[in-house]
Amino acid sequence: MEGTDNGQTPIVKIRPEDASGSLRASLSSLAQNEGPQEVIIEAEPVKKKTVRGLHLPVRAFKSRENRDPNNVNEELKVQFDDIINEPEGFYTPKFSWHLSNELYGFGRACCYSVTTLFCGIPFSFIWGVIFAFLACLNVWVFAPCKRGHLINLSCISGFWATCVSALCDPFYRSIGLVFSNLRVRTEKFVV
């Protein structure tokens, strides 16, 4: 017997005699220990798994997302007014200007869609493989090499610091002592 609790969660009621196999044995032992005549199992409704965005109409999908949140392709945001401009004294009739604007947008969108359909899918796979390879190289080659160089350079940096302090510190201390005895006095004369 099935029902819903407040219209939200479906409730499934099972009697031990309606169950089969191991579920019947479990329900029978539960009924003997606790004594209920029916067991209520509450379950969340089954949610259909949908691919993000594919259930939306095309216009809603395109207008819903910012596909360049980091403005990586800022220079590609080219509208009709960014390309076609008329100088002073030359004016296209309003209808022709509007139609040109619409055809520019239509041609750009169609060409980009077709090109993306044929090139975008293979290139996305290729770029995925390339970045996976680079990530693998970074994890398994570059990061260990960098760590090894840091270990080696820490020994060299200690040696270098000792050499510099042994060779240069006496010279700079002497220069410092020479200039420490200089006294500079400034006076302001008002004329």
Results as ranks from 00 to 15, higher is better:
residue 150 L to H: 12
residue 29 S to W: 04
residue 2 E to K: 11
residue 78 V to P: 01
residue 163 C to Q: 08
residue 168 C to R: 12
residue 62 K to S: 13
residue 152 N to W: 11
residue 97 W to S: 14
residue 155 C to A: 14
residue 12 V to C: 01
residue 9 T to D: 13
residue 95 F to S: 02
residue 46 V to W: 00
residue 78 V to L: 06
residue 127 W to K: 09
residue 142 F to V: 10
residue 77 K to Q: 10
residue 28 S to F: 05
residue 162 T to E: 12
residue 50 T to S: 14
residue 43 A to I: 07
residue 152 N to A: 15
residue 84 I to E: 00
residue 146 K to H: 04
residue 129 V to M: 09
residue 91 Y to P: 06
residue 118 F to A: 07
residue 152 N to Y: 13
residue 92 T to L: 14
residue 65 E to N: 07
residue 98 H to R: 14
residue 107 G to V: 00
residue 111 C to D: 11
residue 54 L to K: 13
residue 78 V to W: 01
residue 45 P to C: 07
residue 24 R to W: 03
residue 111 C to H: 00
residue 103 L to T: 04
residue 114 V to R: 01
residue 188 K to E: 15
residue 87 P to W: 05
residue 9 T to W: 02
residue 171 F to A: 13
residue 160 W to D: 11
residue 42 E to F: 14
residue 89 G to Q: 01
residue 35 G to L: 00
residue 113 S to A: 02
residue 149 H to C: 09
residue 37 Q to M: 11
residue 26 S to H: 09
residue 98 H to I: 15
residue 20 S to A: 11
residue 47 K to R: 03
residue 48 K to V: 00
residue 187 E to P: 05
residue 150 L to F: 08
residue 109 A to L: 00
residue 101 N to M: 02
residue 104 Y to G: 02
residue 132 A to F: 01
residue 47 K to Q: 10
residue 134 L to Y: 09
residue 116 T to N: 15
residue 167 L to I: 15
residue 73 N to E: 08
residue 119 C to I: 09
residue 11 I to M: 05
residue 5 D to S: 12
residue 178 V to E: 12
residue 143 A to N: 04
residue 91 Y to E: 15
residue 96 S to V: 13
residue 120 G to M: 00
residue 67 R to N: 06
residue 135 A to M: 11
residue 96 S to C: 13
residue 32 Q to G: 03
residue 55 H to R: 02
residue 17 E to Q: 15
residue 177 L to I: 10
residue 148 G to M: 01
residue 101 N to Y: 11
residue 60 A to H: 03
residue 86 E to H: 13
residue 11 I to W: 09
residue 70 N to M: 08
residue 167 L to D: 11
residue 99 L to G: 01
residue 113 S to C: 07
residue 118 F to I: 10
residue 153 L to C: 09
residue 73 N to P: 00
residue 6 N to D: 08
residue 48 K to F: 06
residue 21 G to M: 01
residue 115 T to L: 14
residue 126 I to N: 07
residue 40 I to G: 08
residue 72 V to T: 07
residue 89 G to T: 07
residue 145 C to A: 08
residue 141 V to L: 10
residue 180 S to L: 02
residue 189 F to R: 10
residue 118 F to P: 07
residue 28 S to P: 00
residue 150 L to C: 10
residue 165 S to P: 05
residue 38 E to W: 06
residue 60 A to K: 01
residue 150 L to K: 09
residue 63 S to W: 01
residue 69 P to S: 07
residue 38 E to L: 03
residue 137 L to D: 10
residue 64 R to M: 09
residue 1 M to K: 15
residue 133 F to H: 01
residue 174 S to A: 09
residue 112 Y to M: 08
residue 83 I to T: 07
residue 58 V to F: 02
residue 124 S to Q: 06
residue 109 A to E: 04
residue 64 R to A: 10
residue 50 T to W: 06
residue 82 D to I: 06
residue 140 W to I: 06
residue 40 I to R: 15
residue 107 G to L: 03
residue 123 F to G: 06
residue 41 I to A: 02
residue 136 C to F: 15
residue 97 W to L: 11
residue 139 V to R: 14
residue 187 E to S: 15
residue 191 V to Q: 10
residue 162 T to G: 14
residue 45 P to L: 06
residue 71 N to F: 05
residue 41 I to L: 07
residue 126 I to E: 04
residue 110 C to N: 11
residue 127 W to N: 14
residue 57 P to G: 04
residue 190 V to F: 15
residue 47 K to W: 06
residue 84 I to M: 04
residue 155 C to K: 12
residue 156 I to A: 05
residue 85 N to M: 15
residue 72 V to M: 09
residue 116 T to Q: 14
